[in-house]
Design a protein around this nucleic acid. Structure first.
Lengths: 206, 206, 206, 206
DNA sequence: AATGAATGAGGATTCATTCAT
DNA sequence: GATGAATGAATCCTCATTCAT
């Protein structure tokens, strides 16, 4: 029985690999929570701490502060795209997922609308890319002649408007205001979250 | 060459108490500019520097960070009230002044909509008070049966929505988006700024 | 009726002189109170504010921080000397006055015992001079063979010891400890304060 | 000559976590010296500088100014307790150790006697606890009928009295005055320091 | 002679980032 | 690959001191 065999028994060969992936996921989740709680300016060490890892791990996975925010947003956008790609998807549903994220964290959309001016990302192009992905996901379900097809920018301006309306400390308050905003825009939006309730407010990857 | 001969260049440069009011105004103006440029989290020393005064002067006039933001917002709100109180005022005009401020600085409305969560003020009550003043100024010109009278919160939610839509680095872009937002809400808004153009973007007190 | 005559009617000719003296006294009194409350490190502006004068006045009367503390101490020492010079004075009485000051403000004796190391005064010689005056005032009433005549320094060491014992937030606590300290030294001390109670704790100049 | 060759001189100088304990000890030692030299109000950066670490390290180990002072005092008290617990300990010896600390730094006892009024600690309870530990260490060796058992507080008042007497810039002067004080109290105290002389004045942990 | 505004140095504190282990 | 200690720059804030009025 060699040293090696013992090691294998206790720790799978690619332990490091697996742990790394787990850590990255934990960091993104922690960032999501911290951002929702303290905003995008929250100290990075708070994210590492909540993720239960050292600060070095955060830097291993994300080169800078912007990369963390971006990773969270990326995940959100992917969920919206997945909702849009579902066989039975329609505008009401996809907007529901989008709106759910808006009510979860104002950070979400604030990054999306950033033109690079508002600091969190040095990469306005990337923000624009994400914004474009959201726009495509939504537009795929916009019937011709829909209110939001009148002018080229109307769709994303409407999204931004709803983001602006979402204020308030409690989730209920934020949802109520999001709905009210869509109503003022005369756009129908489905139940805010099509997912089951989860502990940390993160919808499963559809 | 005595030390004495350099006396005139000495630091204090105390221009007497007449200047105090001027300094305060300079600070508010500087804060307005800095906020527009860097957001509400900009370092206070940047405001003092732009105002051309020492940091101590800032602290003499404003006990804390919130007081500075509040002074700026207070001024904005007063201008809106004055526009609303003008003899020939109508909703279109008052919304124009409001919107002008929204396009000047996203900070403006972000404080207004703060529920005390977004920190800049420890005094959510005061933010609420200011928000109430804006609401009253607008509502005085809302005809019965106006779109925004349907539900109690609709008016200020609409204001928040426009704030959310106002993104972009250039003033033109921001104005275009603000107008587009009001159009989506089917609310008519007058020329964005009823004032003549000024160097620092501060409208005269009507 | 000239300008001049009006001025004279309202303000006595040497108004400035009188006000200056009044201001100086107010400053010393304010310093005494502030020192008792916040210690010798209290900001000078607090003293000026309590005295009801501008900060400039403080600097007109006292060149620096040490001068203020010194002025307070000087006054204390003078009171002790006056008590010692009274016709019916005895050690018990003089120690009573000294002890009263010790209980009023730990600052009192801390300056006295300073060897120049503890900052408040750049003038250790002056502190020594004041200390000497206290010593002479006391020694004049020390009978031969008194406990505190054994060694040259015993007298002032005993004073310092009582100062060290005087701790506590309330005046009562401080008085109790002062008495206990003298008792441990087997020295009799009279009623702590031979003066009537005054609003600000400052005994009249005997 | 590459940048590379200078790598070793680079700032971080992170010697790994092994050094953390060493740094903490260096900070406590530096604090002890700085306190003795400049008093408890000395700037924290002076302590960090003398310890040869960045200011951040100080804050990592001690949340606030009080924690630093407390750590120093804690160490002193532990030494007194150890002296009291030694098999051949007697009052004379334990008082010797106590007195040695008093002559080392007036800060030592000033914290101990603080009632929470003199600021260094927001935790008067902790100061009281330490004071209690010293008292118990001493009282364990107080024979019945000793001078200092007459009243409940006499023991610690006597300690405070000696602290008050310890003034002077040189160690010799301070020791002489401490002895004189104990003599006036008619309490016998052993050789001031039972330890060998060390560079920084810190006795070994018995 | 009084006032109180302005200055600016200095101390406290926080955090992003690096890196030895 | 993970850890978390160390660094130090940056910001906040306070005050002693000066000086125009």
């Amino acid at each position: 029985m060699t040293q090696r065999s013992m090691r294998d028994e206790r720790r799978p060969a690619n332990d490091g690999r697996r742990v790394a992936a787990r850590n990255r996921a934990a960091l993104v989740l922690a960032a999501r929570e911290i951002y929702a709680e303290y905003g995008l300016d929250a100290p990075l060490c708070a994210i590492a701490r909540r993720a239960g890892v050292g600060q070095g791990v955060l830097y291993r996975h994300f080169p800078d502060r912007a990369a963390v925010a971006t990773a969270v947003l990326e995940e959100n956008v992917r969920q919206i795209e997945q909702a849009a790609a579902a066989p039975d998807a329609d505008l009401v549903t996809v907007l529901g997922v989008l709106t759910w994220h808006q009510t979860q964290s104002s950070a979400f959309i604030s990054v999306l609308h950033t033109d690079g001016a508002s600091c969190p990302s040095d990469t306005p192009e990337y923000a624009a890319a994400l914004s474009g992905r959201v726009e495509r996901a939504l537009r795929a379900h916009l019937p011709d002649g829909h209110r939001l097809t009148a002018a080229k920018d109307d769709l994303m301006i409407a999204v931004a408007m709803v983001s602006g309306a979402v204020t308030g400390r409690t989730r209920e308050q934020r949802e109520r205001r999001a709905w009210a905003a869509w109503r003022l825009l005369e756009v129908e939006v489905g139940p805010v979250c099509p997912f089951s309730d989860e502990p940390c407010g993160q919808p499963p990857l559809v």
